[in-house]
Nucleic acid binder design. Structure first.
Lengths: 342, 342
DNA sequence: AACGTCGCCGCAAACGTTTGCATTGAATGA
DNA sequence: TCATTCAATGCAAACGTTTGCGGCGACGTT
């Protein structure tokens, strides 16, 4: 079962004309006579001719492929982003090549290099947790490869970026709790090394200030409660043992929120009547707990779409066009559920 | 900022030798003198030469890319599979091109065509829910493109396949409940149109029979409880209102299991003492509920790995080798947690 | 001196496609 | 009748790389 790809040459030989003519006929070039066009088209149809896009890429130095560097495919937020990217890319005739860094810097470097070698037309990047050296990205940028960052952006490189308004998300989550009448609101923060977690914290602080509430540093637990419910449980224990315990918790992510909720219940306290809870990310399970968890929905799909749009725009810009870098900030949405409504 | 890719020709010109010599020098060909090799290698290093893999692909008619057709990237199980595919593919020097069918037949046809046009070396396919016509896949197969199915397989095409042993999963889940002393075990089944759900049901039945328990059709709710917790809740209501209510529920998926658990609690019953529960898929939240939910873990990562391995093996087989199709059946793992242990 | 050997390297073709330019033959105009 | 025009097509180069084959100079052998 040989792989017998039909080429323009095959058609040309069969019809006893030159490959050039076949090429032009297929493209409906005015130079070619209607009769020849018809013959060519019919034979191409009959043989199920498919243009070899590798040859096309080589000639045009355009691969119609965009590369995506992503920290973790399995995370809901990220896979949603891929879905959004894919949506726009396919509609615009691009294929999507995915490379997963697995939160490893070394892997990220290899991935960008591999994508570069595959001559992707552009690249969408969200950096790994480990990444602090940007040489591999600067290399691509200097080579003129169109690049757009999403979610985890690199400030020192001048290109378009798409981020979530984490500040606003933190602000709205906290404001919501305040409006529900909670007064002592704690925050389970994420690792300060990541910009987004600092933003959520700042939004939290702003909401407190705006409503005349004090910022009590003992209520801000800055440890890495990011992805481990056990850490969250331990931190919540600590909060509940304070002389003046909080009456609400804003967690930097849903897993932490759930961990907090479990611990609170273990202490015989009620959610939301004794303690209110808001999480972050709108994981599916937040709609399935008891009570359901109020959370901040991040627009992953839209983020993927927007990033892909910006990238394709940059790729398809004529050389003389000046592409100005833009940073799109997508709004989050507060999803109010049971855990925060008294 | 022109895209100035360094080519072999650039190196050749700079060193005043021929491109052939450069190519051979870089490949450590014995014909080339050590001195020339050294010069070439040093200059290549200095200019950061990266071979143009498109040109390589064209020459060798091998793209070192594998295509993946996947129904839904955002599903945990599928994204885990991608992760496994990616893992093996990158280790073997292949890039991964992802195309999402979104459970649409039309989209799946377009996707396979697009991947074919991109001249992927092979393709991994899991069919969409809608797919009942296999012409587009047969076309690829007849063209000699190596192909491996995973999870949602097509029986009528002769190629390797990787599936989960859903029968065994259903069997083990049910057996576990029986061993825990549950006697009247209900089953929230998935849509019968999908093979895997029928398998889970059959495994359930086998376990009952093997342990001398009757198969009570009133305890098998065959409706689509697949992805909607509300359906599961309603079905559970029905079960609880039976004259002789069940003392355990095996749900075809974790969401349904959770829905059942919530409903049971609403009725003032206890899990696991009054009613035991087992789910399917090992979604993350099953470890976070109260009680935690016993479930059947599907080896998504391993499935991706295995499928990628089989595909690459087929791709790299010499023409004279005869590739025999194999079907790998991966075992599930029962994850015993709180919801099923009295 | 003539011949063979060997180390090192370059030429040219090939992969499939596009495209500027040249070529052909026929039709038109003077 | 000859030059001009035009429609229709072919030629060849190019994209970047690999590779079979042949060339060439240096050396050793008879």
């Amino acid at each position: 079962m040989k792989s017998n790809q039909i080429t323009i040459k095959d058609i040309a030989r069969e019809l006893d004309i030159s490959p050039s003519t076949v090429s032009r006929a297929l493209k409906d070039h005015p130079d070619i006579s209607p009769k020849t066009k018809k013959q060519v088209r019919e034979l191409a149809e009959k043989l199920n001719y498919q243009p070899n896009s590798i040859a096309l890429s080589l000639r045009s130095s355009k691969s119609n492929t965009i590369g995506v560097v992503i920290p973790q495919v399995v995370h809901f937020f990220f896979s949603t982003i891929i879905s959004g990217i894919e949506d726009i890319a396919y509609a615009a005739g691009y294929s999507v090549m995915v490379a997963q860094s697995n939160e490893s810097y070394d892997r990220e470097v290899m991935d960008t290099k591999a994508l570069f070698n595959n001559r992707v037309d552009g690249i969408l990047v969200s950096m790994s947790r480990e990444t602090t050296d940007y040489a591999h990205l600067e290399f691509l940028h200097n080579r003129g490869i169109p690049m757009v960052f999403y979610d985890r952006v690199c400030d020192s490189i001048d290109c378009s970026k798409v981020v979530v308004d984490d500040f606003d998300g933190g602000y709205r989550a906290t404001k919501h709790l305040i409006e529900q009448g909670y007064k002592r609101i704690a925050h389970l923060a994420g690792p300060h090394s990541l910009h987004m977690f600092r933003q959520r914290l700042d939004g939290y602080k702003k909401a407190l200030q705006e409503h005349g509430l004090p910022i009590d540093e003992s209520l801000i637990l800055p440890e890495n409660a990011s992805d481990d419910e056990n850490v969250a449980k331990e931190l919540t224990e600590r909060l509940l043992n304070l002389d003046e315990r909080p009456d609400a918790i804003f967690a930097n992510n849903d897993i932490a929120a759930l961990g907090a909720m479990i611990t609170i219940k273990e202490h015989g306290l009620k959610v939301p009547s004794d303690i209110g809870i808001v999480g972050f990310s709108n994981w599916r399970f937040t709609a399935l707990t008891e009570p359901t968890i109020t959370t901040v929905a991040q627009p992953g799909f839209e983020m993927g779409q927007e990033a892909a749009r910006l990238l394709i725009e940059a790729i398809e810009a004529k050389d003389d066009e000046v592409i100005t870098s833009v940073t799109k900030v997508l709004k989050t949405e507060l999803v109010v559920r049971g855990s925060s409504v008294k």
